[in-house]
Computed example of a mutant assay.
Amino acid sequence: MNTSGSESERPTLGVGMVGYAFMGAAHSQGWRTAGRVFDLPLDPVMTAVCGRDPDAVRAAARRLGWAAAETDWRALIAREDVQLVDICTPGGSHAEIAVAALEAGKHVLCEKPLANTVEEAEAMAQAARRARAHGRLAMVGFNYRRVPALALARRMVQDGGLGALRHVRVAYLQDWLTDPGFPLTWRLRREEAGSGALGDLGSHAVDIAQYLAGEPLAGVSALTETFVRERPLPARDAAGLSGTGGAGRGEVTVDDAALFTGRFASGALASFEATRFATGRKNALTVELNGERGSLAFDLERLNELAFHDHTGPAVSAGFRRILVTEPEHPYLEGWWPPGHGLGYEHTFVHQARDLLCAVAAGEQPRPSFDDGLQVQRVLAAVEESAAGNSVYVPVPA
């Protein structure tokens, strides 16, 4: 942390990011914007971005707003002007980069899912605990916690608005893999992605369910399926990056869809669906919670809205009512636009950057922590174990 400058200036925090594709662009948006919207205790400085191809990473640095470019993540970690390392790479590299960064005395933000295996996630969580003793903090990037409507839902559940929870339902549906001619990219290879729709989408579903419920899943019973088991091998450009076509075919080694039920520690029931084969669904995340006193429902395609049913009211006027989550009293909305002017997907990364910077400045553990990410990883592993055993119920280790 750099505290140089006049007393009226806020201290700065140098950020280095590894990876610059879809998630790198989204995280860059958050780092660029957070200090322009919120009154932060630290100013993030976009110091350097890292990628393997020199020309591509320099172009990304210019496009995304980074001051410098590196081609080796170890060199990025070694920079004295980088105090926080943001990891936006495929899951297979998360553990190595995160552990090295924490051991080098850096704060860490790591994209979800935390790792590809429970063993990797455990190593990351252990490294984060050791680093915490020395004032270095780690957070996993489950950005949907930062949707104002879902943050409001969490507040309402905490305040007892639903009473005892009975059911949680989460579905995350996409359709971008329905074409069997879509190439065999890294997301379809277990060694790089860990799992398919389960890790990519199901990790979000599990995290948001546990976040809203305020308790962990105790066990699951699952089915998974791979609908297209072979795909064309991708072409490779000069940088070794996947293109859109190539010669030959390769095996898909991850799931295309996952369907599972679960039980929370309190006894509340849960159901989950994650697929990349739901034709017509582009990024459809829906959540519903039913409690003894009422229900909440959310749809990412209407992300500025939350539906609430108060079951304690008179039956003659009962039903779901729409809450437009744009008031300055709603979570994260104090820095944005007048009521009625909605936010979008990219704002979740601005809120994520804000929350992490505030935690670092206060020396407080940001959430979700690496331990939270590990717990999600244990749920995903239990889902795979259950599916392999024909839907046998598998407890989730505490």
Rank of each mutant, 00 (worst) to 15 (best):
R132F: 15
K282M: 00
R231K: 09
Q377V: 11
P339W: 00
L64S: 14
T117I: 13
P366Y: 05
E192R: 15
H107V: 04
D299E: 10
L333D: 00
A95R: 14
R276H: 13
S369K: 15
R249V: 05
E9Y: 09
R136T: 12
G335Y: 03
D179C: 15
L303A: 01
G267Q: 07
E80S: 13
R132N: 14
P234R: 10
R367L: 12
A128S: 07
P148E: 01
L343D: 00
P314N: 10
A21L: 12
A100T: 15
A115H: 06
A171W: 00
Y20T: 07
G51A: 08
E301L: 03
L40F: 08
V118W: 07
I97D: 02
D355K: 02
A151T: 03
A278P: 02
F349E: 02
D81Y: 11
A131F: 12
I323Q: 02
A270S: 14
R367G: 03
R321L: 08
E384Q: 08
G199A: 11
R189C: 12
T89W: 03
L188P: 04
V118C: 11
A95K: 11
T178A: 14
G389F: 03
S369V: 11
A101H: 04
C88Q: 14
S221Q: 12
G243D: 15
K106I: 10
R249L: 02
N290T: 14
R146C: 00
T89I: 08
E119W: 09
G92M: 10
L173T: 00
A205Y: 01
R187D: 03
R130G: 09
G262F: 06
L137S: 05
D372G: 08
R79N: 02
C110G: 02
T117R: 10
Q83V: 15
I87L: 15
L76D: 06
C110I: 13
S8Y: 06
G16N: 03
V85H: 14
W73P: 05
E7C: 15
R79M: 14
A353Q: 12
A128Q: 06
A297V: 03
A60Q: 07
G246Q: 09
L76W: 04
D207A: 06
R58H: 08
R130S: 09
A133T: 13
V220F: 07
A235P: 14
A213L: 13
A307F: 07
A98T: 12
E96N: 09
A247E: 14
A297W: 04
A69P: 13
H330K: 01
A171K: 00
E364D: 09
Y211N: 04
A197M: 00
E119N: 10
D39M: 06
R145G: 00
Y393L: 09
E230L: 03
L380T: 07
Y393G: 07
H311K: 10
A56Y: 12
H94Y: 10
A359Y: 05
Q210C: 12
A381W: 04
E225V: 07
L42N: 11
A359W: 05
A131Q: 11
F260R: 08
V118F: 14
A361T: 08
W66E: 05
M23C: 09
A149R: 01
R154G: 01
F320R: 12
G35H: 03
G389Q: 07
S271G: 12
A128K: 06
W31G: 01
E288S: 10
P397W: 08
A34H: 02
L241F: 15
